[in-house]
Design a protein around this nucleic acid. Sequence first.
DNA 1: AAAATATGTCAACATGGCTGACACAAAATG
DNA 2: CATTTTGTGTCAGCCATGTTGACATATTTT
Lengths: 173, 173
Amino acid sequence: MVVSAKHPGKPSADGLSAAGDRLAEAIELLFFAYRDFISDPDKLLAEYDFGRAHHRVVHFVGRNPGITVAELLNILRITKQSLARVLKQLIERGFVVQETGKQDRRQRLLYLTASGRELEERLAAPQRARVAAALENAGPGAEEAWREVLLGLVNDEDRTEVEHRITRAPEQR
Amino acid sequence: MVVSAKHPGKPSADGLSAAGDRLAEAIELLFFAYRDFISDPDKLLAEYDFGRAHHRVVHFVGRNPGITVAELLNILRITKQSLARVLKQLIERGFVVQETGKQDRRQRLLYLTASGRELEERLAAPQRARVAAALENAGPGAEEAWREVLLGLVNDEDRTEVEHRITRAPEQR
DNA sequence: AAAATATGTCAACATGGCTGACACAAAATG
DNA sequence: CATTTTGTGTCAGCCATGTTGACATATTTT
């Protein structure tokens, strides 16, 4: 094979810089993995007339009962107007409830209802199965390495918080 | 600490099912890692008045010179109408060129121009740096495990293709 | 000659981001 | 106690990017 001079091929095509491509491959792999990973719950969400934004809220409220709106915004990194749209629907349709904060009565603490927990469980099941299968297939020890790399991808200034969030019991309010 | 009976806490809060939560944590970690990973190129894209959709096209055309529209659609898993919108802009502004296929003259083979390659490089740089830092920090051997798990997350029916795509030289046309 | 394929395009619509402005209650501060 | 700050909600409008459906054209395959 000859790589066209007019249109250079991928760097590795000439066999000279294959090693330098490993990063590009890793980046691509992350794209493919995420593409399929988030595709799981879509059909189910459609049944509820919900979208991926609803999924994220249900997930993080489920994992952090009593989370405040501000904390949720900090996790999702979206504007409060964007969050309000989906949150309103989840509340109206009885998947999420709000409670006024005891210490700080300005806060609206968010909780899943029984229906909300059921939805969360149904959404999480295929993703858990997918991750479990991938981890099992990769053998023992792979999970630790995998998690360490993912954590390393998080912004430096957010890493501590994420680290706590995925291990810590929910903060008290 | 006492978990409210009215609003059950996360499963791990009672210390009884912490192990079962590992999957949920892994799922969350994937969310956080991807959230920050894709945030890198956004500022740069804004300078060009482009979005993430343009980024994806530039990336995959750059990595697969001469890729057909159909192949690109299969990678991105979007409709041809969605692709057409961003592809048209990339072509009009001189980042991508099309060439009629030699064997099959119906095909439009896609290539980056010099500007396109420059854009691709500028977009990829921060992501490569992020991944490189995460891998280095996780120590030797972590990369292999990380990749294996990510590959395991891909749909069974797509795994072989993805595997080839991230290692193989571009197919001939 | 007819059918299938690769691509392009038009139109309309939905989701979920965004900015900017404003309102209100509660808490924190001087 | 008066003032400022904070947490939240909401209205209005815009934009990017996904969707479906229909149709056109050129080319290849049958």
